[in-house]
Write a protein that binds this DNA or RNA. Structure first.
Lengths: 128, 128
DNA sequence: TACAGATTTATACTTAGTCTAAATCAAAAT
DNA sequence: ATTTTGATTTAGACTAAGTATAAATCTGTA
């Protein structure tokens, strides 16, 4: 029954993520807030990111880098990373359900969820 | 032309990984070596893991946990993690090439590689 | 207005890993 | 057999990302 409690800090952090299209890290978010003149305590950033993630308002992305990134798109989708410039983009083409069910058969797991990180070269890097 | 230089330390670390079937972390490997009475400097473990990874003798797995794991299987395959007990298993069912090429079309990336981490419940956890 | 619970803040701490400089080792050159 | 050279190991300092804690502050209800 817990209703959502969007404090000023949480709202500000959510807005930064919604306005960013590069999947910012916690450090990126802190920096952008500081630039806008509204900086919060270090721990508040992490607390809020967890709160927003748990509330389903953002998604935490673990793409194999050292820091987590955050994404305002919460619908089912995957990500692709450019090895050359580091750019992260959304992948909306859906993973075939048929493949997932074959994995379930192979492993005898009940599969809840699949996270795919593709690596490659983006168009602008490739053209150089 | 650099030939492979397997020092005593590197060989010991490689052996631990080859004999483990749970995808150990650096800390796990250190512990297992200590149990066998052959413990090396902290930094040597990390150095050697990087060396063996670069030499293609092991694979580093980033499964979204805090620490990397290491796998003696270097052939193309994916992983599935049990949310309940943490067990990590291999997934040999191949990702459809057709899906990957549709992603390449969608994103205009040249795709080099796809890493899938599935999450679910393993057979023994599910039966409880 | 006062209290209770939740949130923020500042700061200490933890974990996983990198960096550095000195010591050691191993193989080639003398 | 000894020296030199380059690679590796070691110990320990350092870094990055995130967690934990306790005091201060805020918010909303009695």
């Amino acid at each position: 029954m817990s209703k959502i409690n969007l404090t000023i800090q949480r709202k500000a952090i959510l807005e930064v993520i919604q306005q960013s299209h590069d999947h910012p890290t916690a450090a990126d978010i802190m920096e952008r807030l500081r630039e806008e003149g509204r900086s919060f305590a270090y721990g508040t950033i992490y607390n809020s990111l967890r709160y927003l993630t748990d509330a389903g308002m953002i998604r935490e992305l673990k793409l194999g880098e050292t820091a987590s990134r955050y994404d305002a798109r919460t619908d089912e989708h995957q990500h692709i990373v450019c090895k050359s410039c580091g750019r992260v983009e959304e992948v909306l083409t859906e993973l075939p359900a048929e493949w997932v069910s074959r994995v379930a058969e192979e492993t005898k797991f009940k599969v809840l969820h699949a996270d795919v990180v593709l690596e490659g070269m983006c168009e602008s890097c490739a053209s150089q």
